[in-house]
Design a protein around this nucleic acid. Structure first.
Lengths: 243, 243
DNA sequence: TGACAATTGAATGTCTGACAATTAAAAACA
DNA sequence: TGTTTTTAATTGTCAGACATTCAATTGTCA
């Protein structure tokens, strides 16, 4: 069984696509072993390095894993949520940093998505997640915290909020949105007054979730979004004036 | 300048990581040319195939692109929204199909995210996007449409809704969520009655967005989510009974 | 001089063939 | 029977070569 390939495009790309499609169509099941490299060479009529490059492409996407040794080979990988998070974050971060997405747009997206979680989070948040939020709030209130540490804590707070929805698919989707905005947030310098304001919003949100009051939480989140936006605008203006 | 590598782990993996980190730290800027393969061989002290496998890994993540010919080479890629969409969709689809995420969870996530867009979409949707929605509604109402075509049209409708928010970051994040649920939706068999009901919801949503009435649109979306869920539950029960 | 064609060189893409490293299973042995 | 050794299969890496592509250079002619 030979599979035909076009002549113009890179062979390794085509082979990778063929295998990926087979995986996504269900032609290859999880943990199923792919043919050995030698067999793939036969099948596609190319040399081993070419097949290997194709396999590396797939491995980079966590679609397959390889094992050496007897009964080794390439296996269809069950992609884990962890791995998917990582990819999500890498892609989102690059996208935001490279495409001159303005802070406004990124921020709007992030808070819109978070607000999508608030309802569910109010219903389902665990005591543990609430504790995480409170702990982060406490950290944020400590004086002498660096801007970066403050932002990192902010991310942790919001991730707990998102995880509170108890929906791994939501958590996965939002991981990228939340983490990717961090580098942008890091460009802001937070005064003590700013921080106090943000901590107040966070406290309102945590209290509301504690009381399972999604409306109040949503409103606080909206105000926080507006406030963050305005801070960013000021920072941008200062930066603009400086040049 | 030789860069040292560990001995245990795969060399190509380590090289790929080293380059990726350089890109993400800003050590390599967009459109900057990487050293040629020969130079990378020197630098890392490995052979060319190994370097190539590393580069293929990066290419698979859209981190670099390669050009043949004089003044060719590997360049840091400005990742486009299009490419990012593609990755998002691939990852999300696999995640959902491989991790036995139940329809309920996926559906909940998808509609929660969509509802996050409705407000913005009501404010900003263009006439063009409205036209797309109406066109898809029209298609969905046609008799003799296959279940798959119906689902595809459904996806197109919802993508138009999401794009209506006019926020590329939101569109990107949701592309995965919306597209990835399609294979799951395909498992449902839609009766004419089901379809009419869904078309009615879609019409309500389109009308509401037309009138910039986000509340009505949101409510319709919520009902649509519930209805879809119930359809899925029924389908699952039937399937369960059959076995 | 200026425009077009031919040449060249640098780079990636692919191939062949080989050897090393790893690992599970089979074989040998106590 | 239980342990150790051998073996075979498979991926990881290397070396060297040729093919292909493409831009810059060079050459040619009007």
């Amino acid at each position: 069984m030979k599979t035909e390939l076009e002549q113009n495009r890179d062979l390794s790309v085509q082979i990778a696509e063929a295998i990926r499609d087979a995986i996504m169509d269900g032609g290859l099941l999880v943990d199923e072993r792919l043919p050995s490299e030698a067999e793939l060479c036969e099948k596609f009529g190319v040399s081993r390095p070419t097949v290997r490059e194709a396999l590396k492409r797939l491995a980079a996407q966590n679609l397959i894993r390889t094992q050496r040794g007897a009964s080794g080979g390439a296996f269809v990988n069950r992609i884990s949520f962890e791995e998917a998070y990582g990819q999500q974050i890498t892609t989102s971060t690059l996208l935001l940093s490279m495409n001159e997405v303005d802070f406004e747009t990124a921020c709007e997206a992030r808070y819109a998505l978070e607000r999508a979680c608030v309802d569910l989070s109010a219903q389902r948040r665990t005591a543990d997640q609430l504790a995480t939020m409170r702990a982060e709030i406490h950290r944020q209130a400590q004086p002498g915290l660096s801007d970066e540490a403050f932002c990192a804590s902010d991310v942790a707070f919001h991730r707990a909020l998102v995880d509170g929805a108890g929906n791994p698919v939501l958590s996965y989707q939002l991981a990228g949105a939340v983490e990717a905005t961090q580098p942008l947030m890091n460009m802001i310098t937070f005064t003590t007054r700013d921080r106090n304001r943000i901590v107040a919003f966070h406290t309102t949100i945590a209290d509301a979730l504690d009381a399972r009051d999604s409306q109040t939480a949503d409103k606080a989140l909206e105000q926080l979004a507006d406030y963050t936006s305005s801070l960013a605008r000021e920072a941008m203006e200062r930066r603009h004036k400086a040049t």
